[in-house]
Design a protein around this nucleic acid. Structure first.
Lengths: 193, 193
DNA sequence: TAGTGTTTTTGATAAATGTCAAAGGAAAAG
DNA sequence: CTTTTCCTTTGACATTTATCAAAAACACTA
């Protein structure tokens, strides 16, 4: 088997939507690093600037920040998806977002600066970037309209329906801030179903 | 003055961030259509699928949908920015988002299918697409964290600070749903400042 | 200017959610 | 098995926001 054909789930995730040429593929692989991390590992610490895009091959990450002393989960990220601290990566200004792993995980890291070089050189990689960002944007639209005019209960049921496994894998305290409510309220919602 | 150098504010908006070659520029112009519309004009009606990306040279648009009989403003869009019904354009599935103009406006329309052809042929146009979407995503992050854990009053003050002119141009009823609150609550917030 | 329709404000009340404190339960560690 | 720690639930109460109804302010037209 040729080296370039080695199975990497990253490309399985991408390829249905964006064709990546063999050359681009190896260029990408040359800047990607695969690591195994334990539960609790911090990918982006407080005060740090997120300079990588992460692809989660296995495991689960959480992006969060502290607001008025409260820990607020902005995003969960599971197998076969991408995560980074978007505002920081783009603007290069430190936001206060941190990323930590909630499970032992297999993570592919791509330095943002390397990725930008690849964007210059490979049209299809630029397209991949556009695709990933666009997907994320559609997803954000969904979340926004959830938060804008749905009750806490509706939001919970929504999550339960769309992402039932998340509730098995993550403690309720973290889920509640993701839904924009307190832990107590979430507990009460669950009890009255 | 060469035709290709004719002033189009669209390119002024883009060029600080993405270099567009003369060839790409005219390719873009060839699929862009400039129109003047009156206040109240509907760019994307109920039930329609948004098949264009719109650039607002002058004026103001509003993206909204009806939920439980209530009119909810998802987004305002002012001069020198882009709008489209993202979920519909991408997935080609009708969402129930409509786009209407709140002022007499000058709008450049780009058919989404044409744009995708240009993405294929011109790397820099694809980059422009990535840039626009990325910008929008950063902006959405901001809105999301606003809605997730800020009070109605904080959200209003935030808007007042970041977008004071919007409050001059748009009626409070439309602003309130954008902030995720009722009109009455918004009125009370304003009165107690 | 008077009249009509729209937007904004105000009032009374109800519903949803937050806060603080404490009690149960479950899981991990010894 | 017991202890310790962390996670979840429950209770009492405060606060925020929604709802429904009506009044007031404003803008446009005849």
């Amino acid at each position: 088997m040729l080296k370039a054909e080695k199975k990497v789930s990253f490309f399985d995730t991408i390829s249905p939507f964006v064709k990546i040429s063999p050359k681009s593929r190896s260029a990408l692989l040359s800047v990607m690093q695969k690591d195994h991390y334990p539960k609790g590992h911090v990918l982006v610490p407080l005060g740090g600037i997120c300079r990588h895009v992460y692809y989660i091959e296995k495991g689960l990450s959480r992006t969060f920040y502290i607001k008025d002393g409260k820990d607020i989960t902005e995003k969960f990220c599971t197998e076969n998806s991408f995560t980074c601290s978007m505002p920081a990566s783009i603007t290069n200004v430190p936001d206060n977002r941190q990323i930590e792993l909630l499970e032992p995980s297999i993570i592919w890291s791509m330095p943002y600066t390397e990725l930008e070089k690849l964007y210059d050189d490979y049209h299809d990689i630029e397209r991949m970037g556009r695709f990933v960002v666009t997907n994320e944007l559609v997803h954000m639209h969904q979340r926004l309209s959830d938060l804008q005019f749905r009750s806490a209960e509706e939001r919970y049921n929504n999550l339960l329906q769309k992402n039932p496994d998340l509730l098995q894998r993550v403690s309720l305290g973290l889920i509640s801030s993701y839904l924009g409510i307190t832990q107590e309220t979430l507990s009460r919602i669950r009890s009255r179903v």
